[in-house]
Design a protein around this nucleic acid. Structure first.
Lengths: 110, 110
DNA sequence: CAAGTATATGCGTATATGCGCATATATAGT
DNA sequence: ACTATATATGCGCATATACGCATATACTTG
């Protein structure tokens, strides 16, 4: 199942777009705020400290990319993480970054 | 080891930047071309079909982000993938995308 | 030192996108 | 129907960045 064949141009664009969706700090903060379960827009606004309009847009971006799921209930809209593979993604990147940072720390500290 | 504490703003910026580096199709193509081992800039230009200047810039971006390693030998410069976690990253995203695409295909095909 | 080859970089342009602000839409309560 | 609340969206601005083009730099060879 190892991917030996190069991905097509279309596939590469999709993968790139997926990464692009995750390349904004505010969106990562939203994802982080949803780690424990679904939250309403208002709760996410409060949790992230962003403006309501901006948060709503980011949530739209994440939902269109199928990174988040949307559920409407009365006045509120609840967002959640439907695909747990996001967790592994973040773990991988964080782990890789820790290595880099430790290397940099070594360069400074000894 | 599960990450329960929210990442700091600085950490989020770093993670976001990491994803941003991977959010360009041409850079993904370069990474893909390096799956089998190190290549010179000229080989990568030929493999990807990009212009020399553009490829050189992307390689610089990837190297500064520690996604690629750089080794100079005479006139040529050889690039390679030092951290195999990139492979897992790509596998994760590809797998997640396949699910999405299959779901879309189901919606059309039956 | 001159010419050739491989790679890097300065510059201008076109495009994408994050943000703030105001406003529109949807639903609930009176 | 009117008001209030929660969420979404149109618009403009500022910024980032990918690309092409030309040129600079680094190294090799004669």
């Amino acid at each position: 199942m190892a991917r030996k064949v190069p991905l097509s141009d279309d596939a590469l664009e999709l993968v790139a777009r997926r990464f692009a969706v995750l390349s904004e700090p505010m969106r990562l903060r939203l994802i982080q705020a949803l780690f424990d379960g679904e939250r309403s827009v208002g709760e996410l606004v409060a949790a992230t400290g962003g403006t309501q309009g901006n948060i709503s847009r980011h949530l739209q971006t994440l939902t269109q990319a199928h990174v988040l799921a949307r559920r409407k209930e009365g006045l509120q809209v609840y967002y959640s993480i439907p695909d747990p593979s996001i967790f592994r993604l973040c773990e991988l990147v964080c782990g890789s970054l820790e290595k880099s940072l430790n290397r940099q720390a070594d360069a400074f500290g000894g």
